[in-house]
Design a protein around this nucleic acid. Structure first.
Lengths: 350, 350
DNA sequence: ATGAAAGCGCTAACAC
DNA sequence: GTGTTAGCGCTTTCAT
């Protein structure tokens, strides 16, 4: 606490002005280079001198100015992240991912810089600007679409970046993704092990890379469990949201040979399915197995608590930052793709 | 597009090295100060010279280096924001708020820098570090609690900051908040106008500033609508989440004189209430009015679509950034509190 | 209207 | 080991 008092203003050293190398050098009666050495390569400095300088540093509350350091290092130690959102409806995964990314970046001495493209300028320009002005050292991208212009542009310019998620783009680049196919397949396996034989899937409309892979997981899972060819009638699709879950489950339960369990492409869909099941007097968990995707914060609080597929976001963050810093450092290994495995969190709904 | 090609590397001017003032000066046969003037105070430069310099700028794709500029200006044009999350469960409002804040900051030439305190060092140290190293010019705080140490520390040091939300702290500071009391009161008024006379409230446990104010709004609203003194039996509380909503509604509907409408402290609670209503065969909207809080992205997709109280986050963001930049600029007016009014978005659930 | 000098705070490179 | 010199890229003075 006492230390804090001197960080910004000190009655002794002039209000408002943060101490610089020069102040420390003067106080310790050494050159400023020696101060710099004490901070950056202490082993090069004589222990006695070092102690004297360190005392001055502590006394003045000196902290090296980041901008001056960065200017000389020609690096900002900042990573740009274009925050999605606005009209897009808000990805429920966002805050967990952002948190994990921020944490991972800090461990490597980086910070995240958030930005949004304004309406007039396009996405690419926003990124270009940040690079040209030296504001960031690289980017983390998410929600890329087929043939994403950011990916090709950054790739051509040799700007370091790593993508969260895979998309078919005919340019090599580094990405980290979570294997949704395996995740759904393991949910199916789990339900099969619980004795379910007719297992349905409620997913998103065809055409999204992420959604299609999750649907594939359903097929894979059924086949692997020896439940034979998947019944197309048990695969229902709709826009993400509880309404799709509710309508789809209503539809499924009205079938001549209804499913006894359902895997969904998102917790939001599962919430709707849970609600529809209650309406029809079907008890989720006992009579009907339900599995969600993403293990959102509400999952444990639903009735019954929802079994869900959890993305290892902390690991995603660390991996992304690791790949990115390697590229920033110039060690540009071949573009790398890393596929991480999600984890099934079993609760009472299955 | 052609322009982009030169921003980073240009075959003509040496790969990898971004053009500097000196490069432009040389190309335009002027001194570098003139280049600087063309960029920052064009009116001071002779039109003819200006045109020549501008041509060189365009040709080389010159963009002033942000760090050099910041070093000299002794400002980073960065605002620190400690991203909540991790174990806290994830605030569903977060991504919308962050987006609004990012957008507002950009409009004023600022960027957001995200950080999280690590486990060893405390919150205050994380902020102190960012300030002492000149990494940020100020902070936006959210989720402050009673007697928040960050608030008092920053306030004492004269570090510019603005808080989203109010908390009782015996230190003057600037904040922006949304009037939850008025929001809930207007929801009650809306339900009363629809003919409801017994209106319940499902909120959070007593003790949170935000939650208590929303509960007060229920009282205010009932009184203002001339519905007499609120019935304590109609105010139920529990941790945020669908489960609380479901259990509370079950309880309320079992009362001898059950409510015909309910206002909740969050959309999450409302989701639970909606589900419980369906289970009991009560049709939300017609037989039971339900109003949520926050107008989260799922609200329009629930069954029935949920009436909810919407926080004007864009305005919150702009106001916060406005106050913050004023403080950063040194124009430190008396600490200012701004209370914004939320808006009731009426859908079929009421 | 333009240029020359100086310096923001720091560190790499080389001297001593 | 330590100090000196130089320079990162930019923007202020202040001359001219």
């Amino acid at each position: 606490m006492a230390r804090h008092g001197r960080l910004i203003t000190s009655p002794r050293h002039g209000a408002g002005r943060a101490p610089t190398v020069n102040d420390v050098a003067e106080a310790a009666a050494v050159s400023r280079q020696t101060v710099s050495n004490v901070v950056n390569s202490p082993e090069r400095v004589h222990p006695q001198t070092r102690a004297r300088v360190q005392a001055a540093i502590d006394d003045l509350g000196y902290r090296p100015n980041r901008m001056a350091r960065n200017l000389q290092a020609r690096a900002s130690r900042l990573v740009g992240y274009r925050i999605p959102g606005g009209s897009s409806g808000g990805n429920p995964l966002l805050d967990r991912f952002l948190h994990a990314l921020t944490e991972a970046a800090r461990a490597d001495g980086y910070h995240l810089l958030l930005f949004t493209p304004d309406d007039e300028r396009d996405e690419v320009d926003a990124h270009a600007d940040l690079v040209a002005t030296g504001t960031v050292d690289g980017f983390v991208l998410s929600e890329t679409d087929y043939g994403d212009s950011r990916v090709s542009w950054l790739s051509e310019r040799g700007v370091p970046f790593v993508v969260f998620g895979r998309t078919n783009i005919d340019v090599p680049y580094s990405w980290v993704d979570v294997d949704g196919r395996t995740g759904v397949a393991s949910a199916v396996a789990h339900l099969a092990a619980r004795g379910h034989r007719r297992i349905a899937f409620i997913g998103w409309p065809e055409g999204s890379a992420t959604g299609d892979r999750r649907a594939e997981g359903w097929v894979t899972g059924l086949t692997d469990a020896g439940l034979g060819a998947p019944d197309p009638a048990l695969c229902v699709r709709g826009e993400d949201g509880p309404r799709t879950g509710a309508e789809a489950l209503d539809h499924l339960l009205r079938l001549a040979d209804p499913p006894t369990a359902v895997v969904t492409a998102s917790d939001l869909i599962a919430i709707g399915a849970l609600a529809a099941a209650r309406t029809r007097g079907v008890e989720a968990g006992a009579a009907l197995g339900v599995v969600g995707f993403d293990d959102s914060p509400v999952a444990p609080h639903l009735l019954p608590p929802l079994t869900s597929i959890r993305q290892p976001l902390e690991q995603v963050g660390r991996t992304i930052v690791g790949l990115l810093t390697a590229r920033i450092a110039g060690a540009a290994p071949d573009p790398d793709g890393v596929l991480l495995t999600p984890e099934l969190v079993v609760r009472q709904s299955s």
